[in-house]
Design a protein around this nucleic acid. Structure first.
Lengths: 249, 249
DNA sequence: CGACAAGTTGATGTTACTCAAAAGTGGTGG
DNA sequence: CCACCACTTTTGAGTAACATCAACTTGTCG
């Protein structure tokens, strides 16, 4: 338990948590022990069913998943994404039930997240910050759907995902993977896939970004930052904006 | 601290928490002690500013408040409502910062929420359930904004508020107070106030409900339940659906 | 090569927005 | 009690954004 592996060898998921709150060697070791119990869920399969009992928190190690609600008539709304380093099932009521279905978009690797030994520990802080960020992503999504145009929704969403992937070291300042079909993007942004297609062409023609082949390339990052409303998400005074800024992997 | 006041004399706010998890006499007494420190915020004033440090959790005793985001160009999106019995500022990261502005819609009475003595106590459970319900309201709002028509958004939202007020004993099976202008409703549902007005006329003409003078009257509750997607919110196996069902005050 | 999913395009329809003004409501002070 | 004000609700006419429908193209993988 004394091994302190070099940070740059860590899983992206652990890098993210470590960035939220610098972890102790023991905590990193516990997380890495957890990765031994990892299991995979292949693309398009359900990671968790709506209303099912939640056994304990899990950590996403690899791949993209999403929380989704499906309506009786088949309409679908994606509520949010789960990216490497994100936690699923963090809550503290007894006998919790999943509030949404979770679906794997790509193949996803998950592992049990260690229970923080003590309240106030670094790991507990990282979990709390992760939870606060999650709430923030939901709030931002509400603002996006309620008040932004299709064009604005798209660029705001891209900016958010960029920021989030950067936290796990999975984005460069100008590019990141984005393995979604236009239909999934449509169910995220509250649009139709046809309209998403046209909106994507528009941002491309404007020279703002290029979304293609499962990858986003930001061709004008400065302009993007200017167009997007929110400054980097801030949920605790002890977490500097610096830590959350997008920088090279 | 041994006084166990009759439940029907309790504040609506305490009734709600007690419904989420039957509280001990000590816990009820602690909550009532907190009400002695209540303070008021008059209508239209800010309860909490975005980005401000959060000192500790507060309990809404009376009145309506909302969490809101305002965009640079003045567009506004209401993210959710805070009703009697709801908690503000429940989170466990160190030095938390408010993630949204909170505004009083009517005059609001707030008091500090006692810190749960021990993990796993009834009060801690009530807080955890309240937090889980809050998340659910955000998720439901996302589904509403992303995939429902104006008509559907309105009735789904009314059904949610009805369910929530009933939890605090503030709604009858067919009616409840709703002190919002059509403009606020518009900023909630992602519409314009003109369109909200027309949609309200539509539900009225259909005989579904009447929204008028700061009060909603459900003229066809059975049909409303049929039209609305979600069953009563369920976030824990230990909290029966029965407890959350709408019944007479 | 063939099959299937994803992306693209065009024509048309509908929902909700915009602008503008009138009518209703409630509170205040003379 | 009335006049006045600010705010909210209501109505109408025209428009813009996004949805729908249907076909066609491209890419991927066996």
């Amino acid at each position: 338990m004394n091994a302190e592996p070099a940070l740059h060898h860590l899983e992206p998921a652990i890098r993210r948590l470590n960035k939220l709150a610098p972890l102790t060697g023991e905590e990193i070791a516990a997380l890495q022990a957890g990765t031994g119990l990892a299991h995979r869920v292949s693309a398009h399969r359900e990671v968790m069913a709506d209303g099912e009992p939640v056994t304990g928190p899990s950590l996403v190690l690899k791949g993209w998943a999403c929380r989704v609600r499906i309506f009786r008539d088949g309409r679908r709304q994606i509520l949010g994404f789960l990216l490497p380093g994100d936690l699923i099932g963090l809550c503290d009521q007894p006998e919790p039930l999943a509030s949404t279905m979770v679906t794997a978009i790509t193949e996803v690797t998950l592992c049990p997240a260690p229970h923080p030994v003590e309240k106030g520990s670094r790991l507990a802080t990282a979990y709390a910050l992760s939870r606060a960020l999650d709430e923030n992503y939901l709030l931002r999504h509400i603002g996006r759907l309620g008040r932004l145009s299709a064009y604005e929704r798209l660029i705001d969403w891209v900016a958010e995902i960029h920021e989030r992937l950067a936290l796990a070291g999975l984005a460069t300042p100008a590019s990141f993977p984005m393995p979604l079909t236009q239909e999934i993007l449509a169910d995220t942004l509250g649009l139709t896939s046809v309209h998403v297609n046209r909106t994507l062409q528009m941002v491309r023609r404007q020279g703002l970004m290029d979304v293609r082949n499962g990858r986003v390339t930001l061709t004008d990052p400065a302009n993007l930052r200017r167009l997007v409303e929110s400054r980097p998400t801030r949920v605790s005074a002890s977490l500097s904006t610096q830590d959350l800024a997008v920088s090279a992997a």
